[in-house]
Design a protein around this nucleic acid. Structure first.
Ligand SMILES: [Mn+2]
Ligand SMILES: [Mn+2]
Ligand SMILES: [Zn+2]
Ligand SMILES: [Zn+2]
Lengths: 144, 144
DNA sequence: TTTAATTTTGTATTAATTTCAATTTTATTA
DNA sequence: TAATAAAATTGAAATTAATACAAAATTAAA
């Protein structure tokens, strides 16, 4: 894991989002910022248990719940059992490769929701999820 | 429930999708065609148990699984616990009202996925999910 | 320090979905 | 038609991500 943030930066990030910094919250934030792979709660737990041996999974869930309330992360509801979490809250779409399981970002125009049928709706959130095969896996397939 | 399909029509619908028609499959299909509310497996079960008292929930799941394989329905993975099922497999978006819980359709241009970043990807499926407040609930709110 | 507030933990619970073997129904063959 | 094979359905148990919640630990305030 590339270490690109100081503890002070992480603390400030949390404070700016109205979150009191605790060890666990700082570590979860650090993980999310340094691993932009749309991890599941378990991904985060499995990594952090190596750093905080007393960590409970409930704490990871609590932290992510708080992060969601404060707008630090978005949850991705893809066609899979577990939720994934995204520290990038800027409007964008997701592609899940059904071969390798990776979830990639791609840009989406906000124009999508400018349709007559949505006039009168209050839009709080938009999720664009694409399922298919990523470039890498596609090229690997051709070789065979 | 409006009854708009004859048993023969329902049987043909299944046959055209390479599905052997059984009583349960016909009933589930009929429910889906007549109740375009994006129901959950439990919605379907709760209604059909009144018509088929011996029905098991597993059969509803089995049927929906088969329907998905054969392209009769799509599953909607919204930000909620249960999956919903949609007999309308034509490309369109969904809006979930966070007040009344209803899920509405809206048209989406397929242009969305024509972005440079998706070149090289094989796209199998696109989900557009919007969360907010529907017109009805919004107007009800204003009154208060 | 003492007390109060907050955070973290661990266990139990929930609930949608899946698994799978047994049973029932339907189709095929003799 | 009866016997047999194949397919569909059932029901109970297992799975598992997420939640509830009270006790314990940590941190902040008085
Ligand atoms: Mn993302
Ligand atoms: Mn729909
Ligand atoms: Zn891939
Ligand atoms: Zn509504």
């Amino acid at each position: 894991m590339k270490m690109t943030y100081t503890i002070e930066q992480l603390k400030d990030y949390l404070k700016r989002h109205d979150i009191k910094p605790s060890t666990i919250r700082i570590k979860v934030l650090e993980y999310l910022l340094n691993n932009r792979i749309h991890p599941t709660a378990d991904d985060i737990y499995q990594y952090l248990i190596g750093e905080i041996p007393t960590l409970s999974k409930t704490s990871v869930y609590n932290t992510l719940e708080l992060f969601m309330e404060k707008g630090v992360v978005n949850a991705l509801s893809l066609k899979e059992k577990e939720l994934r979490y995204d520290i990038n809250t800027y409007f964008h779409g997701h592609l899940k490769c059904e071969i390798c399981g990776n979830v990639y970002d791609f840009p989406v125009s906000e124009e999508i929701i400018n349709v007559e049928e949505l006039k009168g709706f209050v839009i709080r959130n938009v999720d664009i999820n694409v399922y298919g095969i990523c470039k890498k896996c596609n090229e690997k397939n051709k070789e065979v």
